[in-house]
């Protein structure tokens, strides 16, 4: 989880979200979808829903696969939380689901950014790379003390806060702040993607 959150998850989300529109445009299928007519707003929503579904499934898969491998290799037993308390496997599974939910929310903003970037180009690799770069830049900026005023506004700011799901009692503050922040990103970049996609000339 620790490696996957800052690195692999954004990478995967970047690929998925960056491919949404640009991938169709690159194949040329975008024009056929629009002529079908799929409707631009509808297509955008469906594509974003697809990216979100990935954001939900990916952490869940990682978490549950990790738990399953752990269960195979080690005896199933109580799990120690960060606060030093222990929980039973059932509760632990719930915590994993909570973490997955936290990460899904965390990645929603990045998905929206990827969606927007994807409407800018017909080269999916470009949109994917740009999305991944954005996530890296955001994470680097989050580490620079000189940019501290910016930190609470970075979409990656709360990414590692999923540890709060492992505390006893549960801390919901970071979950709520994260959700609010991500909602902001979804609103801004969703609106940008809408503005861009609805006025875009499909020339591919």
């Amino acid at each position: 989880m620790l490696v996957s959150v800052p690195l692999f998850m954004p990478l995967a989300v970047g690929v998925v979200a960056g491919d949404t529109i640009a991938g169709e445009a690159n194949l040329g299928t975008l024009r056929y979808l629009l002529v079908a007519p799929a409707g631009r707003v509808r297509l955008l929503l469906v594509k974003y829903a697809g990216a979100l579904a990935f954001c939900i499934v990916a952490p869940l898969t990682v978490g549950l696969a990790g738990a399953a491998i752990g269960a195979v290799l080690f005896p199933v037993g109580p799990v120690t939380l960060l606060s030093g308390g222990v929980v039973q496997p059932a509760e632990a599974a719930l915590r994993i689901v909570l973490i997955a939910a936290y990460l899904a929310v965390s990645l929603a903003g990045l998905s929206a950014i990827g969606l927007f970037l994807s409407t800018l180009t017909v080269v999916p690799v470009g949109a994917m790379a740009a999305t991944v770069v954005v996530s890296v830049v955001s994470q680097v900026a989050d580490q620079l003390p000189q940019l501290e005023w910016l930190h609470p506004w970075l979409f990656s700011h709360y990414w590692l806060g999923f540890g709060d799901m492992l505390r006893q009692p549960l801390v919901w503050d970071s979950f709520a702040s994260n959700a609010l922040l991500q909602a902001g990103y979804v609103a801004v970049f969703g609106a940008l993607a809408y503005g861009r996609f609805v006025t875009k000339d499909i020339l591919s």
Binding site: L27, G28, T29, Y32, V35, A36, P37, G39
Partner: peptide
């Protein structure tokens, strides 16, 4: 009126494009 018109229109635009 795109949504009223396009269902009645079949189109082949600048060559075919499909998911390979």
């Amino acid at each position: 009126k795109l949504h009223e018109v396009l269902p009645r229109v079949g189109a082949l635009v600048e060559g075919p494009a499909f998911y390979p």
